[in-house]
């Protein structure tokens, strides 16, 4: 969608002439388009979006913080049911998926398409394991008597971790889509799309870092 930076040759020359003036530098992004910051529109947009996501998750985390010890409606609290070793392992899995993701980005930077697909698949798989773990945890909690509507703490717990789970799932869909496109040769070397998906993926991981500590570990 960056094609509207369409410029005629003269304008391009004019812009390039100006790059020597530091304050008005026009820098090419990695697709050869001229942007003021030197960052592609897509990547900047992703970061801007992630900045906004902080506020979304912040709202949900705060809601949980407010309600985490509130079971006036009866039923167990989330903290009564946590299985810390289990959650630690799934946190570790998600952390490692960040590693495989960054390796996928590095692979496409080198033009190593086979490795790119390997790492994409590994990332999706680790994400899938994490989600399976979450589903397992949820149904265990429900069996132990803490459903979504049991009390305010349980509602807040499921809303927060569920929102995060949806984000991970969307990430998995994106990874698989990228894998398919790459297998069909549609992701050329130097394409930024993997890096942008990666930013999203790492952000989801970073949110889990916060959730793991704030929700699970701090009593």
């Amino acid at each position: 969608m960056t094609d509207i930076s369409a410029v005629t040759a003269e304008e391009r020359a004019a812009k390039e002439a100006l790059t020597t003036a530091p304050s008005s530098a026009m820098i090419e992004d990695s697709h050869g388009h001229v942007t003021n910051t030197g960052i592609s529109n897509e990547k900047l947009a992703m970061w801007v979006f992630l900045g906004s996501e902080c506020l979304l998750f912040g709202g949900l985390i705060s809601t949980f913080m407010l309600y985490k010890e509130n079971n006036e409606a009866g039923g167990p609290l989330p903290s009564d049911l946590y299985d810390i070793p289990f959650t630690s392992i799934s946190s570790f899995v998600l952390l490692m998926s960040s590693l495989t993701m960054v390796l996928a980005v590095a692979a496409i930077g080198r033009g190593d398409h086979r490795k790119l697909r390997t790492w994409l698949l590994a990332t999706a798989l680790l994400g899938g394991i994490f989600i399976s773990g979450q589903v397992y945890e949820f149904q265990l909690f429900v069996k132990e008597g803490m459903g979504f509507t049991t009390n305010t703490a349980s509602s807040a717990f499921y809303a927060l971790t569920g929102f995060h789970g949806v984000h991970v799932s969307i990430g998995i869909v994106m990874l698989i889509s990228a894998f398919t496109l790459s297998a069909r040769g549609r992701i050329p070397t130097g394409s930024e799309s993997i890096e942008i998906i990666g930013l999203y993926w790492h952000f989801v991981d970073v949110v889990w870092i916060v959730i793991f500590t704030v929700v699970y570990l701090i009593k």
């Binding site: 530098a25 820098i27 990695s30 050869g32 030197g38 930077g109 080198r110 070397t189 130097g190 890096e195």
Partner: peptide
Amino acid sequence: GDHERADGTE
């Protein structure tokens, strides 16, 4: 550097 041409590879 800021003015280095990013030519598509990282």
